[in-house]
């Protein structure tokens, strides 16, 4: 499996050539996106995919921190997304702040609450490893969802000024649609930069060392459980942020959107993109969000084709054929 090396060469300043190229690229992609959207070159179907793509990138990149860099399998990422989505939406439904400020605050609140849950869950469960951790995180995702189902959420005022309480199972409605392509783009880029910077710092180094050999990490004075929890909290925070953004894309949101299937999908992005490869996660998140839509042409066969592609890709990734192809190239 491919793993990016951290800190291969530390450039001395922020204003180095590589960063300038990245900045130019970021702006260029934004202009391209703006042109495509504003001039309606992208059809409605594709425009509606911009927010899910951004949210999926954020989810994939943050999960990659846990799975690719720290080396722990988590199947509960959708749970943190749900926490972010619901706290963020409840906040915007019940506050009267001006739009932009409200949205930014919602993003922060959603992220922080999700991060807090990441901490509460991470401290006990990160003692477990491998498949056990996987099933326990999946369990937590489901617990979060059933708790959301059973809570009554204050969701704004009715015309008479009385606060409306909505049962969680009914989902939330009337959510302000704040997520447009500019905001999602900014949030996604910030997420990627923050995570790349973390990966290239001492934190990234420590995560990789724990992944490669936790016992050796302990032996050189690294408090493994502490850094596992830190990683988990960072990932939960960004999953929460992705949730807030996702929630403010449609007026209606149901808890069923955040079940374990979504966690699995996020994991699929990470694994197909390559564990420990941020670029891979981004590409996989984009392709696998767009692919099912492309396959919509073949409507009823699309998920079937998707599943066959998934199996095929995993087998190909681990086949002799691939190794031969790579050798030929080199």
């Amino acid at each position: 499996m491919k793993k990016e090396n951290t800190n291969k060469n530390i450039s001395k300043k922020v204003t180095n050539k590589k960063n300038i190229v990245s900045l130019v690229l970021i702006i260029a992609v934004y202009i391209l996106l703006a042109v495509l959207v504003e001039n309606k070159i992208l059809n409605r179907q594709f425009r509606s995919m911009i927010v899910p793509i951004g949210a999926n990138i954020m989810l994939a990149v943050s999960l990659n921190l846990v799975t690719g860099f720290l080396g722990e399998l988590s199947l509960g990422h959708a749970g943190f997304m749900a926490i972010g989505a619901f706290t963020g939406a409840v906040f915007t439904l019940n506050s009267n702040l001006p739009g932009l400020l409200e949205f930014i605050l919602a993003i922060l609140i959603g992220g922080i609450v999700a991060g807090l849950f990441g901490f509460l869950i991470g401290v006990p469960v990160l003692r477990l490893k491998g498949d056990y951790l996987a099933i326990v995180t999946l369990g937590f995702g489901e617990i979060i969802r059933s708790i959301i189902n059973s809570i009554n959420f204050p969701s704004g005022l009715d015309p008479e000024g009385v606060r409306i309480m909505r049962k969680g199972t009914m989902g939330l409605t009337g959510i302000e649609i704040y997520s447009n392509y500019t905001w999602i783009y900014i949030a996604t880029v910030i997420t990627i930069i923050v995570i790349v910077n973390i990966v290239n710092s001492r934190f990234g180094r420590i995560m990789c060392s724990i992944r490669d050999n936790d016992i050796a990490s302990e032996s050189i004075g690294i408090n493994v459980s502490k850094y596992k929890v830190i990683t988990f909290v960072i990932a939960a925070f960004f999953a929460g942020v992705a949730g807030v953004i996702y929630a403010h894309n449609f007026a209606i949101m149901m808890p069923t959107e955040f079940d374990y299937n979504r966690s699995i999908n996020i994991l699929v992005f990470v694994v197909l993109g390559g564990m420990g490869s941020i670029r891979g996660s981004i590409i996989a998140a984009i392709l696998l969000t767009v692919l099912p839509e492309f396959l919509r042409e073949t409507s009823q066969y699309r998920m079937l084709i998707y599943s066959i592609l998934l199996i095929g890709m995993m087998i190909f990734n681990n086949s002799d054929l691939k190794h031969k192809l790579i050798k030929k190239k080199a």
């Binding site: 951290t6 800190n7 060392s209 050796a216 990490s217 050189i220 004075g221 690294i222």
Partner: peptide
């Protein structure tokens, strides 16, 4: 031997310098 196999030789040492 328990090295950090997927990290560079330099990063192996830098991780130990962390504290």
């Amino acid at each position: 031997i328990r090295l950090f196999h997927n990290m560079t030789v330099l990063d192996n040492i830098k991780t130990a310098l962390d504290n």
